[in-house]
Amino acid sequence: MQRRSFLKNAMVLGSSAFIGSHAQAWPDSHLRISAPGKKIGIIGLDTSHSEAFAKVLNTATAEAPYNGYRVTAAYPYGSKKIAGSYNRIPGYIEKVKGYGVAICADIDELLKQVDCVLLETNDGHLHPEQAAIVFQSRKRVFIDKPLGANLKEVEQVYEAAAKYGSSFFSSSSLRYTSAIKKLKEDAAFGKVVGAFTFSPCTLEPTHEDLYWYGIHGVEMLFAVMGSGCKMVQASHATDVDVATGIWEDGRTGTFRGTRSGIYAFGGEVFGEKRNMVLSDYEGYEGLLNEIVRYFETGNVPVPVQETKEIYAFMSAYQKSKQHRGKPVELHRF
């Protein structure tokens, strides 16, 4: 079926299904009309994040900490080249329609209906173009990982934001685990002197190695170490990538990305007074709290320089790997 016909049919079916059945299938609390200024649009239904975010927000009780924000519209596309992503689009269309989400034919149509945006497209190659359209609207936007498929594309996202005078927020949910939150609030821990993190690190040939999934563990590393990394050295094997960074103050931080063994996230932080073990993935609620706070205030919760360094770190790893483990300095932009 051609994309235009498919989307037209999906929109017609979405409207009739919502009117005819979902009002009965879901409790009234799940079909509340969004408060003014709190309508969220999703770009990209090619990732599980889209369905998960819509579910959490649109089924939240009035007491939930999301201040009435709901996903009301979505544009499905989305990766066109990564089969594992675009094959999921039809299924996720049906799932988000079940939460009362309208399907739009293009991004411009979506922007007319919403107040803020979750850019969820799984394929980082599409982020510079899609983000630029949102930036022109001056609507606040959360851009899911990765910002691009390589550092050049990440720079393009920042350049577009600067051109249109817009801001954005981007982060992995692993930044907001209870252990990392506790670490930041516990003055008795003392200064972080080093850290080790790990996560799954599946590869996608169209993206730099750590961009596709290893970014989760790298985000954890920077969440506890902060910015200031100056150099990265790579160690690579078939089932593992190890990236060791040296910070300007002499501290070291290491990320281990795995493609075999147990599927888990975690690590350990080394402090002046004691150490702390980092917890595994705990869900999207912590991240969604920060997204809603950003939509409300416009204050980006992660320092811009820190997010930039995360991508510079991963690209420095790529270069070090290509040069058989030679240390590579981070590119500043």
Rank of each mutant, 00 (worst) to 15 (best):
D209M: 03
H236E: 04
I262S: 09
P205K: 11
F265A: 02
Y294L: 07
D209S: 09
G214A: 10
S315A: 15
G298K: 13
K273C: 03
H323I: 00
Q322T: 11
E329D: 14
G266W: 05
L288R: 03
E219D: 14
T206R: 02
G214S: 13
K319S: 11
M220Y: 01
G226H: 14
V277Y: 00
I246E: 14
V240C: 08
M276K: 02
R293Y: 02
E248M: 11
R259G: 01
A316S: 13
L287C: 08
T206L: 03
K319C: 07
V300L: 09
S260H: 09
R259Q: 00
R259E: 01
Y213V: 03
E290S: 09
E285S: 09
V277W: 00
T307R: 15
V300N: 11
Y213N: 01
Q233R: 15
G257E: 01
L287M: 15
L278E: 00
G271R: 10
A264H: 05
L221H: 06
I246P: 00
E268Q: 15
M231C: 14
V269F: 03
I215C: 12
D249K: 11
Q322A: 15
L287E: 12
V224F: 09
S260N: 13
S227M: 04
T258V: 14
Y284C: 02
G266Q: 05
A316Y: 11
G325I: 03
Q318R: 13
T252F: 13
G214Q: 07
G286P: 09
A312I: 13
Q233F: 09
E282P: 06
D209N: 05
A312V: 09
D249L: 12
R293K: 15
H236D: 04
F313S: 07
G253H: 08
A234S: 14
I291H: 06
M220S: 05
F270M: 12
S227L: 01
L210G: 04
C229D: 05
V240T: 11
V218Y: 04
F295E: 13
G253Q: 08
G217V: 01
V304I: 13
T252V: 14
F222L: 08
G283R: 09
T238K: 08
K319Y: 12
L278R: 01
E272Y: 07
S260G: 06
M231Y: 03
N289K: 15
F255S: 05
Y263I: 07
G261C: 04
I262N: 13
Y317F: 15
Y211H: 06
